[in-house]
Design a binder for these strands. Structure first.
Lengths: 232, 232
DNA sequence: CCATGTGAATACTTTCACAGCC
DNA sequence: GGCTGTGAAAGTATTCACATGG
């Protein structure tokens, strides 16, 4: 009675796609859309892999977790594969999200063009600041946080975005969870604690730049390091 | 004279800190800053790990790549460890960045409060749209892309941020590279090709939400899966 | 004692290389 | 012949568990 987390169950049913693969499927989807726009009907793993910026073997392995949707000796049907990945990702439906915090970042997110074609719809905006409530941002009227529960229930929203300062993040997360949200994307520079069953992903703008700065530093100090390494 | 860092090459020479560790060091830095603000002078790996949201063993392993900065039986000196990580991350200096694209996202980034305390300074803004050039955003006058090379050279900038629509991303990347930039943070929903020696990190807002949507979808279809798993 | 620092064990990811099928 | 799909190998990352030393 082991709870199988392996990609494949005993009966051969594909289940439990690895995290690393899930993170790449949207990239493949985008690449397939690009190919479809160019009128390409079919493609080999090499072409698709190049479009997606990954190694062809990795691409094939990733796709193999979904099933066998290619044709040996030929490649993949662009439209068919696109549909299969979209289905696996839950993109046959649109996902409504609520954004909490309509400062610079929240406003930018609500105006973001890239969402609509990826099955994401910004359905509601919420802010704690009374001076922002009632204003219109990207065509959506900003609601007070107090209405979060009602909004989430009424519109069946399950994904929330935290775009507030770090200090407010935990309180916002608590409110989102209490309102029934089960997936959170956190842009605030703070860790949030949530109960089991709620997923949180964190995007930290400073950290991305700090990581680049680290590599940058290593590049420019290569000489001194080389000396050290030779000496060791 | 053994300053060898843990991951060794075949000849015993120290290599870089693992990527996964580098990505967490800024998190530890933030946690240490929080502790320092609370007046905490010393902490054990367990406390710091909790603040940072990681397993204590992982924290200790990560820190071990930097050196032995703790005291057995005691823990870590908050200020000392903070300094050591900051030094390793290249945060003893501030890093100037140039943001290309002053739309909603670029404006939000240039106003982002979190950068200054993390050693990041938005030094210049650039846009291809003549109607934006000359306007002031977050106290910085927007320059035309044509001046990119001059700006980068004059201010010794090595990190660039792409905050344009996807279609412009590759051209902007080319211009950044040509201007002398060697690290790029790409927010555009497109892959960019760069020559060797240039680092690119990509943050894709849609993809983060799509990953959440995938897990969300699986949650709501748990019933059928549970049956399947028991059957296996 | 007690918490660090680290080999060893485990888990996950990527890549290789080739059998299998069109 | 050519490309998929996939075991097996190699490479990373995480976690365990305990020797080590203040």
């Amino acid at each position: 009675m082991t709870i199988l987390r392996s990609p494949r169950l005993a009966d051969g049913t594909a289940r439990g796609i690895p995290d690393a693969t899930v993170a790449r499927l949207p990239v493949y989807l985008r690449a397939l859309n690009a190919l479809a726009e160019q009128g390409v009907l079919s493609c080999a793993s090499g072409e698709l892999a190049e479009q997606a910026g990954v190694n062809p073997a990795k691409l094939r392995k990733d796709l193999s977790y979904l099933g066998s949707y290619g044709t040996r000796g030929v490649g993949y049907d662009v439209e068919y594969l696109r549909y299969q990945i979209a289905r696996e990702m839950g993109q046959t439906q649109d996902w409504d999200v609520v954004i909490v915090g309509v400062g610079n970042l929240g406003s930018a997110l609500s105006a973001y063009q890239g969402f609509s074609t990826r099955g994401i719809r910004v359905a509601a905006l919420v802010d704690a600041d009374p001076s922002r409530v009632g204003t219109e941002v990207s065509g959506i009227v900003v609601s007070p946080v107090e209405q979060l529960r009602a909004i989430v229930a009424e519109r069946c929203i399950s994904i929330g975005v935290i775009a507030t300062p770090g200090e407010a993040a935990q309180e916002v997360a608590d409110r989102l969870v209490e309102a029934g949200i089960t997936s959170i994307l956190n842009f605030a520079p703070a860790l949030v604690q949530v109960p089991d069953g709620v997923d949180v992903r964190k995007v930290d703008l400073s950290i991305e730049l700090q990581i680049l700065a680290y590599h940058e530093q290593r590049k420019t100090s290569t000489t001194s390091r080389a000396v050290k390494e030779v000496g060791a």
